[in-house]
Design a protein around this nucleic acid. Structure first.
Lengths: 147, 147
DNA sequence: TACGAAGTGGGAAATTGTGGGAAATAATAA
DNA sequence: TTATTATTTCCCACAATTTCCCACTTCGTA
């Protein structure tokens, strides 16, 4: 399971090294997509298959005939990237995704069960501050939601 | 799988290079057709076979009136072109398709699972802005679905 | 202290995207 | 028809980026 928070560097070549604790579970290739709240999601290939299958509702070969499917798929697939993990555990963040979260210098890499999130460090810090305050209510709410 | 977004140039000879990540999957020939929503669709030959079979299938569950179906098929088939990929990965956009999406200068090349879309860069940007508004709900759904 | 693992940086080589010229083909005019 | 011009195809060249590899540094541990 992917858990924990790490602060790493994104260098001038857009490389970020994955925390060593994550590497085994990640495998050789991962999928990176825009996520919620100014971050990026990283999925293992296995997880991605699950998620995309569930969400894209593999209707038929002609899903492009439906307007809502088109816009959904454009968002889902058009803005994702398949990325290899290099020999020493680093990934390359595509430009269009890097810009999206304004990643410069340091980024937060956060394991959340089956996925990883990448944040601009500052954004992550302020997000945490807010979340911290709401943690109790949030936990309460989540507790209720699971039943 | 064809995923991700790339911004390339369409030159004075109407040439556009396919992102190298797509080349293997595309093979040597592709089909390019007018697409829906101000873009062009590119299919692999394999995918095109599937699509065209489904479109021409008289028993298909498409809820088209006959007249609608005829005109849609004219649109899809009548204006499709088989295009070769040259030795360094470029394709030639036929004039009538180029004009259709008003491609000048820079174009967006977007991988969407089994097809590629080509957009005028500006049009793509504004399309994305709109989609962005729905992004949070979408990501929310994504997050929840990953358990 | 020595060692190995992890994170970071950078140089060299290979690849990719782009532009442009020459050859081949098509179109037009004389 | 031939001569001339335009268009398309093919090939090469360049620059920028990406990829690959090696090395340094830091940190924890034996």
């Amino acid at each position: 399971m992917l858990i924990g928070e790490y602060i790493h560097t994104i260098d001038e070549k857009n490389r970020v090294s994955m925390p060593s604790k994550f590497r085994k579970e990640l495998g050789k290739k991962i999928i990176i997509t825009p996520g919620l709240d100014q971050c990026l999601f990283i999925f293992t290939m296995k997880e991605w298959t699950k998620v995309s299958k569930r969400l894209s509702d593999s209707d038929s070969d002609l899903s492009f005939l439906k307007a809502d499917k088109r816009s959904f798929n454009r968002f889902m697939f058009g803005r994702a990237a398949e990325v290899e993990i290099d020999s020493i555990g680093r990934i390359l963040i595509p430009d269009f995704l890097k810009e999206r979260i304004k990643a410069v210098g340091r980024v937060a890499i956060v394991g959340i069960q089956d996925r990883i999130e990448i944040w601009n460090e500052k954004t992550w810090e302020s997000y945490k501050e807010v979340a911290e305050k709401q943690a109790d209510e949030l936990a309460e709410k989540l507790g209720n939601d699971t039943k």
